[in-house]
Design a protein around this nucleic acid. Structure first.
Length: 112
RNA sequence: CGACCGGGUCGGACAGCCGCGGCUGAGCCCCCAACGGGACUCAGGUGAGGAAAGUCCGGGCUCCACAGGGCAAGGAUAACGGGUAACGCCCGCCGGGGGUGACCCCAGGACAAGUGCAACAGAGAUAUACCGCCCAAAGAUUCUUUGGGCAAGGGUGAAAAGGUGGGGUAAGAGCCCACCCGGCCCAUAGAGAUAUGGGUUUUACGAUGUAAACUCUAUCCGGAGCAACGCCGUGGAGGAACAACAGGUUUGCCCGACCGUUCCGAGGAGGCGGCUGCAUUCCGUGAGCAAUUGCGGAAGUAGAUAGAUGGCUGUCAAGACAGAACCCGGCUUAUAGACCCGAUCGUAUA
RNA sequence: GCGAGAGUGUUGGAAUGGUAGACAAGCACGUUUGAGGUGCGUGUGGUUACGCCGUGUGGGUUCGAGUCCCAUCUCUCGCA
């Protein structure tokens, strides 16, 4: 990936949870600008989703959604995506739609 | 062929494109006096399980405590023999229970050291006498009362001082006898639990059940855990020095204060190590009924730290339970389907 | 990773190994009232009746388990 990396620091997560995020039936998205010039993307899959296999599958698909659509994002943001329980049964197209519409609402997509 | 029992193996496959974590090699760039360190790109190779799970046991490893031994408390285990680093695990065997059978299940020491408990029912629950049976006396006329003997029969209950038959007696009772059951003793077989056979003579073997009730006996156990532990550690805060020279601010000068400079050392965020090569797996062979083990040969099989296996397409299949986090040995639980081996019962045929 | 606790009618919550559901709330019916509220009384786990099954689930010990023991499932909490 060209201008993105994984978000791994716990205090950054906590700072993002304090902001008000965008939500729909599948996901919750928190975004906040940073000064690094790259995107840091974190994914939260809580224990309510199921056991470890289910959580891993949801996390991998959400990471894949971001990877395939990276060109449409503006660099310079911290992003945290929280998966809700409907993600378990959603197929890949629906996850992509849900992800991109939330990103558009948050204003972190590039202007077409 | 059908049903059933035991053991073992696998547990989506193949192809294409994009993508991820370690490792190895090459290229190129940056930092450094050097040793080295870091970023990027390319190539190769590698990358979750039989339960990775639950955390129910046992170890290794690290730190703390004691550094020798004993006692107490608390906890665990429990027929017998063996295996193992160790175990509450495994194998064999004994006893008990279940199944027509292959086979399966069982915490299976000691209530004859002491204490506790046994509701309701029942006369009585660890010792008794309600209905009864018998004897004697009195009243009275075949019943009642009183005193005594008995524990066979009835009834209650999970359980009433072993069972059956006979003798005996006023009526009865292991009171006596025969056989059986259990206990004890002896002999034989066995490594042992145990099995088989015999004895139980004298005044005196017959004792309820419960220890997954307290307890007793025997054996074992120091505590905590990789978020252990070790190393580095910006900033901020703390302490010490400023002896000499020099600088800035506060009023031109002096004193003083602050900034500043150097050094010290618990340590929060973060980073690095610990981190995967051995009680390893497979094959052959010797010992052993087996678990297991001796010898020889071969193989290499993750190491992340918001946590690496995904997405799309095609064919077949439709198919589960489920994701390493310090590492091993077990146990338990979840699990679609496929295959192999052995055994039993039933039916049919030869 | 280590450790602790809980699970019982519709709900909260009791119950020495001995009749399961005390007590309270809710609900239903009756009564009081012109009507409602309040008050009072009765009932309330499942099943077709005798009965049987019912304390998260499955076993075991016991004459008898909500209780004791073992395994398991779910939930809650604590420490670092």
């Amino acid at each position: 990936m060209k201008f993105s990396c994984a978000l791994k620091l716990n205090h950054v997560f906590r700072r993002l949870y304090a902001t008000s995020g965008q939500a729909n039936g599948y996901l919750v998205l928190y975004a906040r600008p940073n000064r690094l010039g790259i995107n840091r993307v974190g994914i939260t899959t809580g224990k309510k989703l199921g056991h470890a296999v289910v959580r891993n599958r949801v996390r991998r698909r959400l990471r894949e959604v971001y990877r395939l659509n990276e060109d449409r994002f503006t660099p310079g943001w911290d992003i945290v995506v929280v998966a809700r329980s409907r993600c378990i049964k959603a197929d890949f197209c629906k996850l992509t739609d849900a992800y991109l519409s939330l990103a558009e609402k948050a204003g972190i997509l590039k202007e077409q």
